[in-house]
Nucleic acid binder design. Structure first.
Length: 429
RNA sequence: GGAGAAAUGGCAGAGCGGUCGAAUGCGGCAGUCUUGAAAACUGUUGAGGGUCACACCUCCGGGGGUUCGAAUCCCUCUUUCUCCGCCA
């Protein structure tokens, strides 16, 4: 595990203990005892540090003295002074170890605390309690012969699930012909839209180390979600958020550099342990899928405005694709561990008669920046943690599923107009 | 994969056992000069902890060791560069 410094957030916990406990109740997290333990440990950390500092000061001064004595030829006196250092050495070693233990314990506790939900987050237990805040797009009326996307995929031979089973296993489909081409068209279209909106396109590694996993909060919380490459102790990314946000790990940025807006296309890998059954059919849930991601690093004061802008940006894309969707504000129970406020975009899958999540847009405030130690220096030279945000724009398979299902006609699948220049065809038949 | 060399502040680059948190140059910031700018000159300029503020402590790739004392010596890991081999 990486040796992140003691979290700066302890300060905030101490200052806002009551409010935080209250807010965390919304996500059904009882923080009382953890906070108690954290504050006690922090107290102990500081007192131990103080004692250690004093001893080190003493032994530093003694060493300097000894040096001077040797220089001036007073070897006897010097040797006498040496004797005194033995006890100090022992004490400092003991206190040093104690410091290490306290710090490790403190960090372990801090890692257990999820992000403090934004005031607008509704209380709630599960996805049932998410709040729909917007919806748009016409739900097409399909003919009686309409098929779910996995049937369409077979009918037009554009996605082969069985082939994926053979090569790898369930959840690794093979896209073929116009299916592959359409997938590529979507990726290019999304990236172009993001670039137009001011995002900087980057390509990132698909394997990340442990430190990166801790930085964005996948570790230790979601250890089992990621594929782990044991030989080299690396993880396959579950989302490009991980490498993207870790680009700036341990950095002290200048306020002039902000906002930093990144977009990337990557495959994503998720073990999805424990999720089986009919609702994961076809493209609904995969172990490997493509996604175009947005990441924003901003000054704290700007983050909620940027969150809104991200939501608007994704709306624009879905509007252009003419797909029916809705936006949910996640309730405390459904909110991710690292997020303070999340909006989910769901696409209506007409042939399946259900909503599919295609984007999740979150403000992490300082939660990730704290773990990643991404700070910035403001105009007045004050240093503070930045805010990080991310969102999908968009997750490919479900968008593809939505297009296949919602755009199906008796003559074949019509390609949404905006995608035609990218795809090079206007129909799959 | 084999053989060598190296890792120091935003960058470049000294220091190789004792006031070294670190010379010097560039860059950055502030000021003087200027109608304004450039140039020149002057000053200032790493990070974290701690404190009301000082004091004080820690950090010269990571970890460990030797020593009263380590950027400097030893071990180890990682990374980078050069040469060789292999290769998309």
């Amino acid at each position: 595990m990486q040796s992140t410094s003691i979290m700066l957030e302890v300060k905030h916990i101490r200052a806002n203990q009551k409010e935080y406990v209250q807010a965390l109740k919304k996500r059904n997290f009882e923080a009382d005892s953890v906070f108690e333990a954290i504050l006690n440990l922090d107290e102990r950390r500081r007192s131990t540090q103080k004692k250690l500092d004093e001893i080190l000061f003493e032994s530093n001064s003694l060493s300097k003295e000894i040096g001077m004595l040797f220089k001036s030829g007073e070897a006897e006196k010097a040797n006498a002074a040496k004797v005194k250092t033995a006890g100090l050495k022992e004490d400092s070693k003991r206190l040093g170890e104690e410091m290490g233990d306290v710090a490790t314990e403190l960090q372990a506790l801090l890692y257990q605390v999820p992000n403090i939900p934004h005031p607008s987050v509704p209380a709630g237990k599960s996805e049932e309690d998410n709040e729909e805040i917007f919806s748009e797009g016409e739900i097409p009326i399909l003919s009686k012969s309409a098929l779910p996307h996995w049937e369409l995929a077979k009918k037009y031979d554009i996605i082969d699930f069985e082939l994926g089973n053979k090569i790898t296993g369930a959840g690794f489909p093979v896209y073929k012909g116009k299916g592959a081409r359409l997938q590529r068209a979507l990726i290019s279209y999304f990236l172009d839209k993001n670039t137009e909106a001011g995002y900087n396109e980057v390509q990132v590694p698909l394997l990340v180390n442990e430190a990166s996993g801790y930085g964005t909060g996948q570790l230790p919380d979601k250890e089992g979600q990621m594929y782990h490459v044991g030989n080299d102790d690396l993880y396959l990314i579950p989302t490009s958020e991980v490498p993207l946000t870790n680009i700036y790990r341990d950095d002290l940025l200048n306020f002039k550099d902000l906002p930093i807006q990144l977009t990337a296309y990557t495959p994503c890998f998720r073990r999805e342990a424990g999720s089986y059954g009919a609702h994961v059919r076809g493209l609904n849930r995969l172990h490997q899928f493509d996604k175009v991601e947005l990441v924003n690093l901003v000054k704290p004061d700007d983050s909620y405005q940027v969150l809104d802008a991200m939501v608007e940006h994704i709306k624009t894309i879905l509007r252009e694709l003419k797909l029916p969707y809705r936006i949910l504000r996640l309730c405390g129970g459904d909110l991710g561990f690292t997020s303070a406020l999340t909006f989910d975009f769901e696409l209506f899958s007409t042939a399946q008669d259900r909503w599919l999540e295609i984007s999740s847009v979150s403000n992490f405030e300082t939660f990730q920046a704290n773990r990643l130690k991404i700070r910035y220096k403001d105009v007045d030279n004050k240093k503070a943690l930045i805010h990080t945000l991310n969102g999908s724009s968009l997750a490919l398979p479900r968008v593809l599923a939505g297009i296949l299902e919602n755009y199906q006609t008796d003559e074949g699948i019509v390609i949404p107009e905006v995608l035609r220049p990218y795809a090079g065809f206007d129909k799959i038949s």
